[in-house]
Design a protein around this nucleic acid. Structure first.
Length: 467
RNA sequence: UCCUCAGUAGCUCAAUGGCAGAGCAUUCGGCUGUUAACCGAAGGGUUACUGGUUCGAGUCCAGUCUGGGGAGCCA
């Protein structure tokens, strides 16, 4: 067996001058193989780069020409040859092969073809779909976007906090939770009341998968000033939509000595920064999305990066929306939660760019959001973007213990469940603020992909956890 | 969970209630510069499942399952 090649197709595309008329050795997978009697062409993808490199093979140079000509899509091969310029052809250069060896064959039942497949079909072969153009582009962008987020916060000296995945708090309040247990479900210990006795469970109490790292991130913000979390999040909601998954990733920055204005500035800076980063570092992938997935994509992203995001209060938004009530299936009035149709009208028709809606009625928002002086609204903000709707939700947190306790009481929650969260207010509490960005929603917005199942390698949704 | 649409060859899709089809893929053959190459031939079907209407059902009806889209919940 020959050694695997040291040259990558990415290196060749980035600096072709270094390789012209020189012998290189490559390794990769066949995307397409077409040939006639005495010569043939292989489109080779080696995983390092979005585009393929064309390999020319001829019967006079290859003693195994007939075998190579029969190789199917997906075959893993080792190639040696010289890189030559092809100024008159569709591709800029190609390899004239002197040797091609098979490392791993790919029989004829290989499900991927050199044609367009539906995303629905590709979801059923999630282990093979990263070998297609679209998913190759999606998951390289996902990786770059992840890196951009870390780089953004590191440049601003934020501390990266690993908040727990398994939480002992059943009070995070952001949605239905997955239980974590080692109890035997068929024979669980019971209390005298006949309920499951979690004191016998692994942790000696009831535990769940986290639905948000926010509450614990607040604890670290009140020590490090500026922190962020970036990790998996779990919601057991029976949500069957293109925008929801049971397992997804979330970015949650939290800043001490910061108010809602600071929060919005951070969100706007972050969105612009990470989008710009990906545009710079994955130009081929972004060009592909713009051509084949979403024709207006690059223009829209450019609009996000260059425009100043709109800002409007909930009350002002309701006034605007009420003028258009005839066209909504859910009529707008002060106090209702905005529906997707309302959010999209605001960002797509009124502002035509991303817009923050702030100061929502306290009744429709979480208990920890800071009460405004009007006693009716809280210092919350949602960032709405064209095409998606809500992509970020955040708020200034209630730092006044007496106000927080009052909300806990009003909502029928128990103070003792929040003993440590209340401590944060008791000892050196400061104004502080943060937000949550759905990582997959950011990817969807960046790529134009319209289903969250197509931006997660192996997505988990109700009734679906294959692989 | 609700509404809605769909399920036919490996894939993408046709077929007025009347013989089960095409393109791609696969196999074989041809072709001296291809670009999802091209040309010729062959193989490939429990029409998602169960029941019903009918002389006759892929097509109509009922139920079930699976998937898509929309809504709610939200990120």
């Amino acid at each position: 067996m020959k050694e695997a090649a040291s040259t990558t197709i990415r290196q060749i595309y980035r600096q072709p001058g270094e390789y012209y008329d020189k012998k290189v050795s490559l390794s990769g997978w066949i995307r397409n193989n077409r040939n006639s009697k005495a010569f043939g062409f292989i489109e080779l993808n080696d995983g390092s780069f979005f585009k393929t490199l064309q390999i020319v093979f001829e019967s006079e140079n290859l003693e195994n020409f007939k075998d190579i000509a029969k190789l199917g899509v997906g075959t893993a091969i080792l190639v040696e040859g010289v890189l030559v310029e092809t100024p008159n052809a569709r591709q800029p250069f190609e390899i004239k092969a002197s040797s091609i060896q098979v490392e791993g064959s790919s029989p004829s039942e290989y499900p991927l073809q050199k044609k367009r497949h539906s995303f629905e079909f590709l979801r059923t072969i999630a282990h093979l779909r990263p070998r297609t153009n679209t998913f190759s582009a999606v998951f390289r962008v996902r990786s770059l976007l992840s890196y951009a987020i870390h780089q953004f916060f590191r440049e601003r000296e934020f501390v990266y906090v690993h908040t727990p995945i398994i939480t002992g708090s059943d009070a995070e309040g952001a949605g239905e939770m997955f239980h974590v247990t080692t109890l035997d479900l068929k024979n669980a210990p019971l209390t005298e009341k006949g309920e499951i006795d979690f004191s016998k469970d692994f942790f000696g109490r009831e535990t769940n998968l986290t639905v948000s790292g926010q509450l614990t991130a607040e604890a670290y913000a009140l020590a490090f000033r500026n922190v962020y979390t970036f990790g998996p999040t779990f919601r057991a909601e029976n949500s069957n939509t293109a925008r929801h998954a049971a397992e997804f990733w979330m970015i949650e920055p939290e800043m001490a000595f910061a108010d809602l204005q600071d929060d919005m500035e951070l969100a706007e800076d972050m969105v612009k920064y990470i989008f710009e980063y990906v545009l710079q570092h994955a130009p081929e992938e972004m060009e592909f999305f713009n051509s084949f997935i979403d024709k207006g994509l690059l223009e829209r992203l450019e609009n996000v990066i260059t425009s100043e995001f709109g800002r409007i209060t909930y009350t002002e938004a309701v006034e605007i929306l009420m003028k258009n009530n005839d066209n909504f299936s859910y009529k707008v009035e002060w106090g209702i939660d905005l529906q997707t149709e309302h959010e999209r009208y605001l960002t797509e028709e009124i502002f035509k760019k991303p817009v923050f809606v702030i100061n929502y009625p306290k009744e429709i928002k979480a208990f920890y959001m800071r009460l405004n002086d009007d006693n009716k609204t809280v210092a919350a903000m949602d960032l709405l973007v064209p095409g998606i709707g809500e992509i970020i939700g955040g708020s200034q947190r209630e730092e006044r213990l007496d106000f927080l306790d009052q909300r806990i009481q009003e909502l029928g929650m128990k103070e003792e469940d929040y003993w440590w969260y209340r401590d944060l207010r008791k000892y050196g509490g400061t104004r502080h603020a943060g937000f949550g960005l759905g990582f997959e929603r950011a990817i969807m917005y960046m790529t134009g992909m319209s289903n969250i199942r197509d931006v997660i390698p192996f997505p988990r949704t109700p009734n679906s956890a294959e692989f």
